[in-house]
Design a protein around this nucleic acid. Structure first.
Lengths: 213, 213
DNA sequence: TTTTATTCGATACTATGATATCGATATTGA
DNA sequence: TCAATATCGATATCATAGTATCGAATAAAA
């Protein structure tokens, strides 16, 4: 039996949504082929990076012609599991939570948010962007019944671990963590941290470097 | 004259907000010293990474004791320009825009959002989280008068370039771009892309790997 | 006072990711 | 039909980031 542990580098994976967006745009523009050069130009990358990334998902280009757009899209979707959407719930329908609920673009990347949970009586029972908002007391039961895979965590930091524990015991497999807290979860549960301050820090330093060059 | 181009690695810079948060927590817990080991444990890092990162901002620990918390905080804030806040404006007060306006945490990382701009008459003239919302027609003038440095771009993708152009001509030095579009700007303007789909892609792949190991 | 344990920094090493080079191939146009 | 050119993939190289090892320093304990 061959090695099953497939190791694709992380930066490549993180670029896939970019490629997918651009390829769909290119397709809707009526182009059937596209060169790595063109993609690189449009996405601010190097052509060689594009070619290597596309090779990872199993598609090769033809000399002088480039890549077939439609197969490329399908290969990426397949590779990333984007066309078999995963059900998710969101906990914490505050500002950020609502922004995430309202962003319809995630479906294209395989994420299907089916409901939100909150502790605020004002929003419980309402729907936000077509998603029902339930009280926390119903969390476990609803997640189990609907076999929810992913939890989006957008509560205030002080409740982060508490809610994460609930997510784990409700059988969720992954947590998309928008709080700036480390979560203690069993090793089989995947946590994806999201911290806007990181990008801000990067911007800040780049700006101050600009000044002195 | 010595080399002025200071190269600090990006991952280090992106970790600074984490350190700052944790050091402040540690300080408010009354601790005066903290070991790299402790920080690493709390932040899911390796101790050696913590030590090297702190060395970058110019603070060294003492054997057997660790790092002095207060000087460490000050060193990071100094290094990152966090205590001389930069004025910013936000364009596009939709769901995401409002979430960003409502997040008070950015001030600690040197970002001071002073106003928002939008084209929607329903929000123009109101205040959102204490920030006034102005019409786009006033953008250039207000930015110039107040010497705004950073623009936060959270409009629908189709308007991204157009607004970016306005930002450039209003003299902004950096753009924090939350749209999934590449922006064409002159080289002296810094663009920081923020794409939530990247994190989602990473989560998605990690999850699917979990299944088969 | 001496020993022990902890934590540090410096150096060296490893892994990962990006880039440069180059020959091969297919389409276009002469 | 044949030459020119754009584009590809493979291989090798380089840059960046993370990790391991080890001696030195300091505080606490004996």
């Amino acid at each position: 039996m061959p090695e099953k542990k497939r190791l694709t580098k992380l930066p490549t994976i993180r670029r896939m949504p970019m490629y997918l967006r651009m390829l769909n745009k290119v397709l809707s523009d009526g182009m059937q082929h596209v060169s790595s050069n063109y993609l690189a130009e449009e996405l601010d990358l190097e052509a060689i990076v594009v070619r290597k990334d596309l090779a990872v998902v199993g598609i090769l280009g033809k000399p002088r012609v480039g890549f077939e757009v439609k197969p490329a899209i399908e290969a990426i979707e397949q590779f990333m599991n984007f066309n078999s959407p995963t059900d998710a719930v969101l906990v914490g329908a505050g500002h950020l939570g609502q922004a995430l609920l309202g962003y319809s673009g995630f479906v294209k990347f395989g994420l299907n948010i089916v409901a939100a949970f909150d502790s605020n009586p004002d929003v419980i029972g309402t729907t936000l962007y077509d998603k029902p908002v339930y009280p926390m007391s119903e969390f476990t039961q609803r997640c189990e019944v609907n076999n929810i895979q992913i939890g989006i965590l957008s509560v205030p930091g002080k409740y982060a671990q508490e809610v994460a524990d609930m997510m784990v015991s409700a059988g969720l497999k992954g947590i998309w963590n928008f709080t700036p807290r480390k979560l203690n979860v069993p090793p089989e549960v995947v946590v994806q941290r999201e911290d806007l301050a990181e990008g801000l820090a990067e911007l800040s330093v780049k700006l101050s470097r600009m000044g002195q060059e």
